[in-house]
Computed example of a mutant assay.
Amino acid sequence: MSTPRTKAATATVAKPVVVHARSLHIGLNAVSPAHYGNWSGELAACEADATDMQAIAKTNGMKPTVLLTAKATRAAVLAAMRAAAKALKSGDLFFLTYSGHGGQVADVTGEEIDRKDETWCLWDGQLIDDELYMELSRFASGVRILVLSDSCHSGTVTRDTVPAPVVPGAPRPRMMPPAIALRTYRDHQAFYDGLQRDVAAEAGKAGTIDPDTALAQVAIDSSRLTTVVSTFGPSVILVSGCQDNQTSMDGEFNGAFTGRLLQVWNNGGFTGTYTQFRNAIVTGLPATQTPNLFVLGSAARFLTQRPFTV
């Protein structure tokens, strides 16, 4: 005769929530002269930056992808981001880092006051900021996204001042020279204008504000505020290497921003929040380079976490 099962025995045991994390680390010590008007943009420490960020990701239980120099093409970067967006669910983490030159193309969709769109200089073409933030918006609601960008991607320095000449042996700024930016855009204008219009059309169909504009407007440390994108699902923290009117510098072993970040992180010894992390990085850099902190989406809880927590 079988013994009746008790209520306790038949109760369903809740399964633990499994959090997944992926990361993508992009580092370019040069770009293809074929796309950039015979300019190769040599830098010294960007590949090392990407490798060091990969090490942090692996130590913290993430599944990393690394794209270095000639492997860091537009197609490869977009494919890796879209694969992560497809795989990750609410509560998961995507960690994205970029180390390389920042550039500019003319804004043809009218969302930029200065009529310039900022870019990441990938091997065979630039990734426009509008594209980047549209790709981030594809992630599921509740996904946490951390972006670290060690480059010059504001154009204020490019637009309003003449860059100092590069001294042999001295650190190079991670900024595409203005003349090269103009030449590259001129040679590929139809391509870059088309990318911007495609993003604008997609944003219009989705009924959302342009994600690049929205990111700037909800910046914690920026004067550009007003609107929040209510339909933006993931929680994004972006820490950039410098302010809009400054220059991120290359280095012998790491970029100035990445090198200071590694010092503060101290092989996992840092135990503060993201905001405290950024502030500690700032204290070790010269006044000419002050990392910026932006958020997009519902990132208040995300900001209180220890950096790189899966």
Rank of each mutant, 00 (worst) to 15 (best):
R5Y: 12
T6S: 15
T10D: 02
T12H: 05
V13A: 13
A14N: 01
P16L: 10
V18F: 04
H20V: 13
R22Q: 14
H25R: 04
H25A: 03
G27E: 07
A30N: 01
P33N: 03
H35T: 15
G37L: 11
G41R: 04
E42S: 13
A44V: 11
A50G: 02
A50V: 02
D52G: 11
Q54A: 11
A55M: 09
A57G: 06
K58S: 14
M62D: 11
T65L: 09
V66S: 00
L68G: 03
K71R: 08
T73N: 08
R74S: 11
L78K: 15
A80F: 05
A84S: 14
G91L: 07
G91K: 10
G91R: 01
F94I: 06
Y98G: 07
Y98E: 00
S99G: 05
G100T: 00
G102K: 01
Q104H: 06
V105T: 15
E111Y: 12
E112K: 07
R115P: 02
C121T: 04
L122T: 02
G125N: 05
L127D: 00
E131L: 10
M134A: 15
E135C: 05
E135P: 07
L136V: 02
R138M: 11
R138K: 13
A140M: 02
L146A: 06
V147L: 10
L148W: 06
S149V: 05
S151P: 08
S154H: 02
S154G: 15
T156H: 13
V157H: 09
P163L: 09
V166A: 14
P168C: 00
P168S: 09
G169D: 03
R174V: 00
M175P: 02
P177Y: 00
I180A: 04
Y185V: 00
H188E: 10
H188Q: 06
Y192V: 09
L195Q: 11
D198W: 10
D198I: 11
D198V: 14
D198S: 15
A201E: 10
A203W: 01
G204P: 05
G204Q: 09
G204D: 04
K205W: 07
V218C: 14
L225R: 15
S230V: 13
S230P: 09
T231I: 09
T231A: 15
G233E: 00
P234N: 07
S235R: 13
S235I: 07
L238T: 11
V239A: 15
C242S: 09
T247H: 08
T247Q: 13
T247L: 14
E252N: 12
F253I: 13
N254W: 05
N254L: 09
F257V: 01
T258C: 11
G259A: 07
G259Q: 07
V264G: 03
W265Q: 00
N266E: 01
N267L: 01
G268R: 04
G268M: 03
G269R: 07
F270I: 04
F270H: 08
G272I: 04
T275P: 01
F277P: 09
F277A: 02
A280S: 11
V282P: 07
G284T: 02
L285K: 00
T288R: 02
T288W: 08
Q289A: 05
P291I: 03
N292P: 03
V295G: 03
R301I: 12
R301L: 12
Q305H: 09
R306Y: 01
P307D: 01
